[in-house]
Design a protein around this nucleic acid. Structure first.
Lengths: 218, 218
DNA sequence: TTTTGCCTGTTATTTGCTTAACAATGTGCT
DNA sequence: AGCACATTGTTAAGCAAATAACAGGCAAAA
């Protein structure tokens, strides 16, 4: 239990990188590699080897001096930290273009993260299956989330429904929300929220393109 | 020219928030509001008023003491900073589910950011239009990007083609890439790169759900 | 056997950003 | 007029994360 609390203090950015290291390591393993150096991982991720070693130090995993890290072991250690043993059930709320694309994108990628339901208000979609996942009515949110033990929701409804849908999700007992809606939502302390706004990101890229152009014109 | 260099030093996070402030402000303006307080903006974005004021200080915009900020003016100031006067042309590279969803999502949202082309390798898609945007062959990347003066690319090809497609984009003269592929890419210094990995984000949310569960079980 | 070089693991420093603290100022109320 | 107060704008402190610096150790080469 002490150890688990320790992991809780890992930097957010380290958690993100561990997820990425693991995927890279699995590819290496498939290619028949058994050991890997910090600078090799760094090269794949385009970061520095110091950062890799520091992340691995934080999770308490040690490599061997001339052989580097044992890939199989490291994958297991990372999995033990970031995966839930039981697996976490996911719902896609809002089965528009983006919702459906994300469902397809995520489906089967990680066996500890399973998309088990979609939700929408559109009568035509309700009851239908998409990629083997049933689409339910948002009116049945609470019931379905409870019955299927869904903990995580990907929110892809139109922006004007963000707030009310988020409230319903929280009431239904959801423990984490990934909000892809351009409208920020608010959740209680015990619900983990991650927001991502594509328009903002696009505008940011555009801004730095513009800045670079202007620098050139000096 | 001095002023432009000054904007170049704005924190990345401030740029992101400016984009979000602007959208919120436009909605307020539509609702007939003319002035707004920092704490009102903060409430909409779920951040603190201090942060809003600090951001506005950094861009050198001043409000009035008892009336707050003039919404119309502030929108113009932000637009002047983050928008390119000519507008920036965008291409979606990889017209799979995610690519098409993003195209629809972005289309028409911001008139200074126009999606003017899609690219794919699938013969069936090439030459077709999607939402009024033509899908070209990836073989014509360089030609089309040059002819249509495209500066920004949204990369949504399958992961195994990330690297080679990114190289083609760079060779074609693209100045900014938004990589939605789970595989990190590398670009020269003069190309701005922003990467976003949905699987990582999902796993991060799942991790914090798991952590919270375990804390409860103590 | 000694030395060189290449790794890992840890501590220290720096950087970038957020949050806190507070000074300044004009408006409305008494 | 004078006081209380809401609000802005700025400076200072605090925090989280990245980077740098370096100590330790083994393996192969000389």
């Amino acid at each position: 239990m002490k150890i688990k609390n320790y992991y809780k203090n890992l930097p957010h950015k380290t958690i993100e990188r561990l997820s990425q290291y693991r995927r890279a390591l699995m590819i290496c393993l498939d290619n028949g590699k058994t050991h890997i150096f910090s600078h090799e991982i760094a090269n794949i991720q385009h970061i520095t080897s110091v950062q890799v070693r520091r992340d691995l130090m934080l999770i308490g995993y040690s490599g061997t001096l001339r052989k580097g890290y044992n890939i199989q072991d490291l994958i297991e250690v990372i999995s033990h930290i970031i995966d839930d043993e039981e697996g976490i059930k996911v719902a896609v709320v809002g089965m528009g273009n983006l919702g459906r694309a994300l469902m397809k994108y995520v489906r089967g990628k990680r066996h500890k993260l399973e998309v088990v339901a979609g939700f929408d208000t559109n009568e035509e979609k309700i009851g239908k299956e998409y990629k083997g996942v049933t689409c339910y009515s948002i009116d049945d949110l609470e019931k379905v989330i409870d019955e299927l033990n869904i903990k995580l929701a990907i929110l892809t409804v139109p922006a004007k429904y963000s707030t009310e849908t988020a409230e319903k999700l929280v009431d239904a007992g959801i423990k984490g929300i990934l909000n892809y809606t351009p409208k920020p939502i608010r959740v209680p302390e015990d619900v983990y929220l991650e927001e991502y706004d594509m328009i903002t990101t696009l505008e940011k890229v555009a801004f730095y393109i513009k800045m670079h152009q202007e620098k050139e014109g000096e």
